[in-house]
Design a protein around this nucleic acid. Structure first.
Length: 426
RNA sequence: GGUGAGGUGGCUGAGUGGUCGAAAGCAGCGCUUUGCUAAAGCGCCGUACCUGUCAAAGGGUACCGAGGGUUCGAAUCCCUCCCUCACCGCCA
């Protein structure tokens, strides 16, 4: 949520930054300003009347104490009371309207973000490693996985419909090994605290991390829209400290969580849907940070490199892309996507999206910290996958496939997986 | 699911219709005294919003779990809901 005071004081600046997203959101600014002016007018008048009522009520109390008549004053206050009822309703409505509108205005992209309409304008900021030189026929993860029975998409569909994965045998074990490997890496070497959160989250939390109200059709809801299946651990973990005031000495907070993620993927039918690349349920390791305004961009760099480390240790080629203004997510000011190379797709697959939301989410969830001067400030929140599993799984088996159809796993997984290769159905 | 107890400021905890945004204590901050430490004394010390201003000071309103109601006036009375704790039942 943008700060209404910023909108009030620098409307041109806000409009200009929003316009770089190319979504026409800047048109909402005039409406917000108009509602804000109305709201404040009713509020000021309301408060004037309340002050008057308080004053007269005290007089009535004083008169009664002295056993003097107070009928006239009481009639006066009764009349003010009626006006207050009316104005309270009007002020309340204006506030509600303003809040709802503010919830639908996206964050301002960072001042230095590359300007552009869509993903074509994203900028590759670095890449690591090289595309693997594979001997013989290059198979994609579906062929490899089917052959070695690492997952079973047809039976998953029998259970849950299309867009679900059922890992089996060595595939299930590899999934588990990767989870354990990543959790150990982030907790032991990168200093994150492990959280195992609930997967069902309340509506307020979904609003807090910006999945709602705009993207409700992409979410799985239960209990009449009061609970949702979390589409990412970002939701439960970032909201962990919602409505709190943290001590500055406790910042940054760094959390890592392993959870399944549930997404309807409405409207993305046919896009990148082959195999296990885009599904309704997938596992993910998520990194979340809560920090100060001063340090959030530094923390974004380190968070991104913490996620990259997973690919480096697994020896997978990837690149890091900075998203342009037209491609950054609704709540984000700045985002790096980490894209792993998939030999099977002959394409880079997004396995992590590392974002700094600045105070956009914190304002929605009223998450603050007390700064060095004892003043309460909205925290800055960040998150990124570290990493998303099915795509990592796909890139891994494709990159390490052998001419005979087996998979030679990177050494670092040995203690987690228990053997160096997958060469037969288990 | 049932029964009972309870939700007041960073914490503990008073307050049962009027001058209560709320006693007191603890913690925190500042000052004084003091050889150091300690202790004592004095003062300050919630949040949001509106207004005001270059900025402030200042003024005002709201908030005692949430939402309604009664009343001239509600932390206080009434209703509904939520949450926490304890015990019972059921259950992975």
């Amino acid at each position: 949520m943008l700060d209404i005071r910023l909108i009030r004081e620098k409307p041109d600046f806000v409009r200009e930054r929003l316009a770089t997203r190319g979504g026409g959101e800047e048109a909402k600014i005039d409406i917000v300003l108009q509602i804000d002016a109305e709201r404040r007018k009713s509020e000021t008048e309301l408060q004037r009347l309340q002050a008057e009522r308080n004053r007269l009520s005290k007089e009535i109390g004083a008169k009664r104490a002295k056993k003097e008549p107070s009928d006239e004053l009481e009639a006066q206050v009764r009349k003010i009371g009626e006006e207050i009822v009316d104005l309270t309703k009007r002020a309340g409505e204006a506030e509600e309207k303003q809040k709802n509108l503010l919830l639908e205005i996206p964050n301002l992209p960072h001042a230095k973000a590359p300007i552009g309409k869509n993903a074509d304008a994203n900028v590759v900021v670095r890449s690591w490693g090289e595309k693997p030189k594979l001997a013989g026929e290059v198979r994609d993860h579906v062929a490899l996985g089917t052959n070695l029975k690492l997952f079973d998409l047809e039976r998953a569909a029998k259970i849950s419909g299309s867009g679900f994965i059922c890992f089996t045998g060595a595939g299930a074990k590899l999934e588990r090994a990767l989870i354990q490997f990543m959790l150990d890496l982030h907790t032991r070497e990168h200093g994150y605290r492990e959280i195992s959160p609930p997967f069902l989250v309340r509506r307020e939390c979904m609003i807090g991390t910006t999945q709602l109200p705009k993207f409700e059709e992409d979410m799985y809801g239960l209990e009449n829209g009061e609970l949702f299946l979390a589409p990412t651990a970002e939701v439960p973990v970032t909201n962990f400290h919602r409505e709190e005031i943290l001590a500055i000495v406790d910042l940054p907070k760094k959390f890592v969580a392993y959870t399944p993620c549930f997404r309807r993927e409405a409207g993305s039918a046919g896009r990148e849907t082959r195999g296990i690349i885009r599904v309704h349920q997938f596992d993910k390791i998520e990194l979340v940070k809560i920090t100060t305004a001063e340090s959030s961009y530094e923390e974004l760099e380190s968070l991104t490199s913490n996620a990259e480390r997973v690919l480096q240790l697994l020896g997978l080629h990837y690149r890091v892309v900075e998203l342009c203004t037209g491609d950054v997510g609704f709540g984000s000011a700045k985002t790096y996507d980490i894209e792993v190379w998939s030999p099977g797709q002959k394409a880079y697959l997004e396995v992590s999206s590392c974002s700094n939301f600045e105070d956009f989410q914190a304002r929605r969830m009223n998450l603050r910290y007390k700064d060095a001067d004892g003043k309460n400030k909205f925290a800055h929140t960040l998150n990124g996958s570290g990493l998303a599993l099915p795509r990592l799984f796909a890139a891994l088996i494709e990159s390490y496939q052998q001419p005979d159809g087996s998979i030679a796993l990177p050494e670092i997984l040995l203690p987690y997986f228990g053997s160096a290769k997958i060469d037969k159905v288990d």
